[in-house]
Structure formats: C-alpha cells, structure tokens
Amino acid sequence: MKTSIRWVLKILMVLTFTSGFIYGAAPNHSDHFSNVPSSMLAKANPYSGHPQAVLAGKKLFDHHCSACHGRGAEGSGRAPSLKGDVIQYTAPGAILWFLKKGDLKHSMPAWSQLPEPTLWQIVTYLKTLP
C-alpha cells in the first residue's frame, strides 16, 4: 500500500514539474499575436458593423471581461487596457484566436466554452473601442 502511495506522489511531482515547463515556454504579453495561424488571420468577422452585435458584445464583455479589464476596457491591476492601437490594428480573426486559447500563464482564461458567434460579438465590441 505504501509503495502505491509513493508512486502516486511521484506521479504528482512529475505532473507538477511538467506543467511548469509547459507554462514556462508560453509566450509573454508582447507575443500574444505572433503565432496566429494564417487560417485564423484570414477569417472575416461575420458581425462586423452590426450595431446589435456591438450591444451584445458589450453585454458579454461586462459579464466575462470587465472584472479584469475594467468596466470600459481601460485596464486594471489585473489585466491590460484593450483601448488603443493593439486591438484596432490586429486582425479580428487573431483576436478571436487569442480569446479562444487564452494566456493561462498570465491569468487570461481560455474562453473556448463560449460559442464562436458569441466570441465574434465580443470582437465586434472590442473593435469599437477608441
């Protein structure tokens, strides 16, 4: 019995260290959009310019993102501002890709549980930010 507990503890240690290495290799903030697959870069936002999608995106942003990024996406101590050039000059497909995969090392959750149309609505809202 003691042997099997020892084995379990060994496995736990290996898993912990392995996950540490994987996260150690994760890109930093400046590299967020550097590895976007070309298929995602080419994706067009089906909701681009839809006022209803902007409103829906704002509602979703308030529910899921504002706690970290601030009510008006101005940023907080926990997450950066989403206003300004980075979002405006990044392809919509790249933002969608980043929302889906997150940046777990830097506390950005992966939002893959939200359906793609919902994520596009968030992207549509983000693109309206000044």
Partner: peptide, 17 residues
Amino acid sequence: RIRPLAGSHWINPVFYF
C-alpha cells in the same frame, strides 16, 4: 484541477487530484 497544456486544443486534458 490542473490544466497542463496552454492554449485550446481539439482535446484538452486536465488532471484532477
């Protein structure tokens, strides 16, 4: 629960203790 892989994949593993 620990999610060992960064990013979103076709199959995403999580270890539970």
